[in-house]
Design a binder for these strands. Structure first.
Lengths: 114, 114
DNA sequence: TGTGGTTGTTTCGGGTCCGTTACAGTCTGG
DNA sequence: CCAGACTGTAACGGACCCGAAACAACCACA
């Protein structure tokens, strides 16, 4: 399935959604944080710090810090991998799922009214 | 015109574009900065600091600082309003237009391949 | 003329994020 | 069993951003 968007439509969509995120009361996540969150929820587990860092093209501490922040917001949780205790498995949470569901609604609604 | 996006499509689109922004070499702008930039380029001038602050629901210093940063990157320029010298008019630049053109391409391409 | 209200900017203290580097815990193959 | 490789994390210094408040330039109307 393919969705055709003109230049103006693309930018309007991005603008409207970004505006909704800014005006939102919740502390707005950075682009990197949203990207991490979406990777966790869209791709199949398991997700380790190393994998996420490689996928995003950033260093591992960036991931650790983003997980700290989003962990505090309960958007994500961490657990030790019992099979290899060096690894940390990043897991989804109810709050994180709700956050992304709301984000998808925002995107979908603004796309519909383009 | 109306564009229908499922939940998964919305999130995938957002993820892909965010990923492209993160992996990009250019320093990635915050959501607020992109929102300001898009407002300037999508809506009709003139754009004053006060207007932008009201539209985004943030304080004026936020706008001033964002304009400082994006001005350094030459994505935006400032000029005094000669009719009312209290005002500062925010103006578009070639670099800013190119930046947004690239962003629109990224969005459009990922939407097409949803 | 001048005073009150408007603009945008600066300052302040506190927080977050960055990349690099150094570190501590864990596995693994000789 | 232990040296080396691999995990994720902490520490450091610098940059940026935040909101609130103070500030400086400017206008407008009495």
């Amino acid at each position: 399935m393919s969705v055709a968007l003109s230049t103006a439509q693309s930018l309007t969509l991005w603008h409207d959604v970004a505006l909704a995120m800014v005006r939102d009361d919740e502390p707005d996540l950075s682009v990197r944080q949203v990207c991490i969150l979406l990777t966790i929820y869209l791709e199949a587990p398991p997700h380790t710090v190393r994998d996420l860092a490689r996928k995003l093209g950033v260093t591992k501490p960036v991931i650790t810090r983003a997980l700290d922040t989003m962990g505090k917001l309960e958007l994500v949780s961490r657990r030790r991998d019992e099979k290899d205790r060096r690894n940390v498995l990043v897991q989804r949470t109810v709050k994180g799922a709700l956050y992304l569901e709301r984000l998808a609604d925002t995107i979908g609604n603004h796309a519909k009214s383009l």
